[in-house]
Amino acid sequence: MNAPTDTLIDNSLSGYLERLQTCCRKHFGSQVEVQNLSKLSGGASAETRRFILSDPNKRSSSAVILRTSSIQQGAEFSTSISKDCEAQIQKLCRSKGVPVPEIYFCLEEDDQLGEGYAMSCVEGETIPPKILRKDQYATARENMTDQCAQILANIHKIKPNDTTISLEDQSPLIQLEKLEQLYRQYNQLSPIFELAFKFLYKNAPKKHEITLVHGDFRNGNLVVNEQGIKSVLDWELCHWGDPIEDLGWLCVNAWCFGSELPVGGFGSMDALLERYSYYSGQQVDLEQVKYWQLFGTLRWGIICLFQLNCFLTGLNRSLELAAIGRRVSEVEIDLINLMEAL
């Protein structure tokens, strides 16, 4: 989803602001003040708030993002890692040169603010149609394929042995089985989805590297300014797996917003592969990327079915979810176009 987020004054919890202020003073000193607290988004898995932390002594103020686990009861498509784990992964990636917001602190139980962490607020654009169409991002678009390749290569240099952080191991077959299980629950059978499952089971990579995988690396989770990518967001789906999964997901047509360029709507696949091989020192097979592109497209299709199901069962009657069921045919034509070219 790429709905613009509103700045809504958050008053859902009484005393929230006071507790947040107490917490910030614990980390930054008794002089700091929390101002302009607003809720940016609330989903099934996470809530994001923004505030200004001002320090009258230093005459400085900076924008801070607070990400916490959702207190909403609701269905979730994928199992997200804990917020503590998310913070640790971001710290690790930052130390390896990946552009991610700086983690300031993790919430503790006696803060009474839930589970989560505070991080720097990186200013920039995240809405793909704006990034893809506005003149001010023309230079950014030229740089983004190279930047994606470099960022992904750096993420993928992190191996299970490099850290004590515990993440799920998600090989392609494990993921496929989970996806199929979900798909069959929704009772919206599609012969085209079946064909894609068949192909993906049959052609699953038998041997692959196991590295850190971001899991949701796409146009929409990239903070962009005039020069290009400033920061990578939304680490809650990261796992150990085949690194090429991230490359394929980045090339799913749903993130291209009408552009013919398959890499997030801003780059060619040849350029992505060439730059990724350069930064990672690994030769990447085009077939492998296409495998994961088809995988990602099917995954997006099943996310659409999941959201359709949330609408049909009355769990969420929002306008966006009402419309998303009709996007299944978009996914079907994407799957056909990809399977024809295999």
């Binding site: 047509n253 291209c256 009408g258 552009s259 013919e260 009709r326 996007r327 045919s329 978009e330 034509i333 994407d334 176009n337």
Partner: peptide
């Protein structure tokens, strides 16, 4: 019917 403007279409 669903989206005749879609790029994949």
């Amino acid at each position: 019917i669903d989206n005749p403007k879609y790029s994949g279409y």
